Amino acid sequence: MSNILILTHPAFGILSVLAAVWLLVETMNANGLNQARITKAAYGVTIFMLLAWIFGGVWYVEYYPAEKAMILNGPWAFAHSFYMEVKEHLFFIPLILALYLPVVVTRNRLHANRTARIMVVAICVNIIILSLSIEVAGAVINQGSKVSFVQKDSLGDKQ
């Protein structure tokens, strides 16, 4: 089960980023004909972000404590002490922004409301940048875990 969670969490995160890019492009080219696609993309960002949050949360509560101990005792302790700490606090921002997107999109016809268009573009850019930063932090944490397990294995062979 942990293998599924560790794969679905970042996969849904990236799908959320891709949906945000889609929404960004549709919003920058908003017209009366693409409002349905804009709405679908906004809901896609929200759904994928929520799924990434749920799968990541389950993994974090169920499986990360043992891995955290390994990382903190390994050569890449900074992978948890810095990157996971940043990730733990940063993920709320794109989550809240993703939850807000459908509200902005469904309450406004973006092709007729320049201010709402600018708001959606700003939200998408923030989601994209923050989510990709979180993905990079996750990669560093993953590497910190791998390095810790390799060190444990090599020390175990010498004993």
Rank of each mutant, 00 (worst) to 15 (best):
V104I: 15
V136Y: 05
W22Q: 05
E88D: 08
W53F: 15
T27Q: 04
S145G: 08
R109G: 03
K152I: 10
A69G: 09
F12K: 10
E26W: 00
K68T: 09
S145I: 05
G74C: 06
T27G: 08
H111I: 10
Q35S: 15
W59Q: 13
I134S: 00
G156K: 03
I96C: 03
G32R: 09
N142Y: 03
A122R: 07
A116K: 04
A52Q: 10
A137W: 00
I93A: 09
L18R: 03
V120D: 02
F48M: 15
A30V: 10
S131M: 02
R114D: 10
S81G: 05
I38Y: 08
R109D: 07
M119C: 06
L24C: 08
I134F: 00
V125I: 13
V61R: 09
L155G: 12
W76T: 11
F92I: 14
K68D: 04
I129V: 15
F92W: 11
N29K: 12
M1Q: 04
V86P: 00
A41Y: 01
N126E: 03
N73Q: 10
A30H: 03
H9T: 12
P94E: 02
L50F: 13
G56Q: 08
E88Q: 13
V17K: 05
D157K: 11
V58C: 06
H111G: 10
W59H: 14
L99W: 06
A116E: 02
L72Q: 11
Q159M: 07
F55M: 10
T115P: 01
I134H: 00
V86F: 10
I123S: 02
A19Y: 06
Y83Q: 05
A116V: 14
F12H: 09
Y83G: 02
T106P: 02
A41Q: 12
L33I: 14
F78L: 10
T8F: 14
V61W: 01
M70K: 12
W53C: 13
S133L: 08
I128P: 05
A137H: 02
Q151N: 04
